[in-house]
Design a protein around this nucleic acid. Sequence first.
DNA 1: CAGGTGGGTCACAAGTTGGTAACAGGCTCA
DNA 2: TGAGCCTGTTACCAACTTGTGACCCACCTG
Lengths: 224, 224
Amino acid sequence: MKALIVDDDLALSDVVSFTMRRAGFDVITAHDGRSALERWEADDPDIIILDLNLPKLDGLSVCKSIRDQGDTPIIILSVRGEEEDVVKGLELGADDYIVKPFSPRQLVARAEAVLRRAKSAPVFPGPQSAGNFVLDPARNEVCIGNGDNIQLTQLESRLLEVLMLNCGQVLTSVSIIDSVWGSNGGDRVMLKQLVYRLRRKIEINPSEPVHLITISGVGYAFEA
Amino acid sequence: MKALIVDDDLALSDVVSFTMRRAGFDVITAHDGRSALERWEADDPDIIILDLNLPKLDGLSVCKSIRDQGDTPIIILSVRGEEEDVVKGLELGADDYIVKPFSPRQLVARAEAVLRRAKSAPVFPGPQSAGNFVLDPARNEVCIGNGDNIQLTQLESRLLEVLMLNCGQVLTSVSIIDSVWGSNGGDRVMLKQLVYRLRRKIEINPSEPVHLITISGVGYAFEA
DNA sequence: CAGGTGGGTCACAAGTTGGTAACAGGCTCA
DNA sequence: TGAGCCTGTTACCAACTTGTGACCCACCTG
């Protein structure tokens, strides 16, 4: 496993490098945005630890460039007070963030978690399965366990597909709405309705859902 | 939105074109592999509907060429019995497939789904751990030791996240307020209230806190 | 001792969120 | 044309979240 560490603070960069090496990573470093991109292209790392404050080319731009050209996992380093930039980074496709000061062990733990997540989520069209759910998006049908097929509507099928593609993860209402209706299509009320209708088809007891879980104030998650 | 439709069966191609046009797409057509590539380079479509059986240059080769040079979404049209080719196509980077015969509406739905999927959902940060506390900021849940999960509100979860990220360190009230409510959001009274509420959930004896410690005149600290 | 300050506790109200239900327009298909 | 389904819309209700004011106690200081 190769890690690219990008930080202009040399002291910190050294600490991080040491920790990651001890955790079994090969480490490459860069100290400004432009050389970060060069190292990324040249050495093809498995994960990138990226500080946002960088000379020559700021962290967000680096993040965007890398996301435009590939899907190497990225963890953002930020200092307190940069919350907005962190959010921007996550929206640009970063995989996680960690706030300085942090314990080295924390960083390693997050890095390994991100790598695990990256490997386990190959996005593939066609029939989706998660747990004992098998969804055929082409026919809008879902089969639960070894039971009968359940006929869904198109919207129900899309909703379930999005959730199953991100099985176990929490999706915000907004991102679900984007995925189901497109970026300027639906609203929360329509999603609420759709969830209600889907639950009546796939949950044994729709009023106590065990698969299509509500995360209050955030969104929904699918559990197999 | 521009769609490039590639099929040597003129009748089918016409039906597909008509449907896509009615769905609001601009449509370009090609009837063999070589001209498909030419049209792709010349017109830069947003999505490609690609039949696999093509004269001059077969569909898989077209698929490969396009993937080598760009990332335009591709939907493969196949007839039953060509499953192996479909799999090859998906491995080459096609985004979805649809089996003939299909209803026009289905095709449009899949096309829109693929386009939506192209800009995918934002990802949530992973769990935080400190001592025997494990916090899932996405679900607003915390697990203490091997006990049950405790459901938090959004604000409680943010507060705990900030404190856990700086485990063992003292944070001033002001910096906590900034992190939880944003730079011009909260005041000390709201923080006081929030601490009180969080303590009732995570402390065994809320009136003698051992984790969420008060540093009088300064702020708070989290101890694992 | 009186008064001020910081913090903990409690109760309440407004606002928000999510689940449920019923209905209407539009589309498909016979 | 008419039946039936899908989807969006509105409405209502219950539960929860959050901000606010009030009150208390402990401590410090003059």
